[in-house]
Computed example of a mutant assay.
Amino acid sequence: MKAAVLESFGQPLNVKDVPAPVRGTGEVLVDVVAAPLLSYANEVFSGQRNYILPPPVIPGCGAIGRVREVGPDSARLKPGDWVFCDPTVRSRDNALSPEIVLQGWSARGEGGKKIQRYHLDGAFAEQIRIPTENAIPTGDIDPAEASKWCAIVTLLIAYGGLLAMELRAGETVLVSGATGNFGSSAVLVALAMGAKRVVAPGRNMRVLEDLNRRFGSRVVTLALTGDADRDTQAMRQAAGEPVDAVLDFLPPSAQASVARNAIMAVRPCGRVVLMGGVGMLGGEDLALPYPWIMRNLITLKGQWMYAPQAVHTLVGLIRAGLLDLDHYAVSEFPLAQINRAVDSAAQQSGPFNLTVIRP
Rank of each mutant, 00 (worst) to 15 (best):
A234N: 05
T355Q: 05
L288S: 06
G111R: 12
G177W: 10
R49E: 05
D244S: 15
A256C: 05
T25F: 09
L191M: 04
P308F: 02
Y51K: 10
R214H: 06
G65I: 10
A195M: 09
G104P: 04
I58S: 06
P21F: 11
I58E: 10
R206A: 15
V33P: 01
G71D: 15
L102M: 08
F352T: 13
Y51L: 13
R295I: 04
V219A: 09
V311P: 00
S46F: 05
P21S: 14
P21R: 14
L281D: 07
A346E: 01
Y290F: 14
V83W: 11
I357T: 01
M305K: 00
N94K: 08
R68G: 13
R236M: 14
A345V: 06
Y40H: 13
L274I: 11
L274G: 01
L174G: 13
V273C: 15
L335R: 06
G202W: 13
V28C: 12
R230P: 00
G170S: 09
V173W: 12
R168V: 07
R340K: 13
G24S: 06
M264K: 12
L37Q: 06
D326E: 15
P137L: 10
V173P: 10
G240S: 09
E133I: 09
G240F: 07
I293S: 01
G109Y: 02
D81I: 07
L224E: 12
V220C: 13
A200G: 04
K16P: 00
V311H: 01
D285A: 15
K16F: 01
L322G: 00
N134D: 07
A307M: 03
G277P: 03
R214E: 06
E133N: 11
M294W: 14
P308Y: 00
Q303F: 00
W304P: 00
V57I: 14
E209V: 02
A345G: 02
V342M: 03
E209Q: 15
V243A: 08
R214C: 02
V15K: 10
R68S: 14
R295C: 04
V356H: 06
A320W: 05
T138G: 07
D229Q: 11
R49L: 15
S349V: 00
L325M: 13
A4V: 08
T25Y: 02
R260S: 13
P72K: 15
A123H: 04
V15F: 13
Q303A: 13
I263H: 00
E209W: 02
L222S: 15
L38T: 15
R236V: 07
L174F: 13
P72T: 14
G65S: 12
Q303P: 01
N204V: 04
A310L: 00
S74Y: 01
E241D: 08
L317F: 02
D229R: 14
G279L: 09
V266E: 08
L222Y: 12
L247N: 04
G302P: 04
L38V: 15
V243E: 03
P36F: 08
P359Q: 06
S217Y: 02
L247D: 03
D73S: 11
A262W: 03
Q116H: 05
N134K: 05
A200M: 03
A146H: 09
A35M: 06
S331A: 15
W82M: 12
G276P: 03
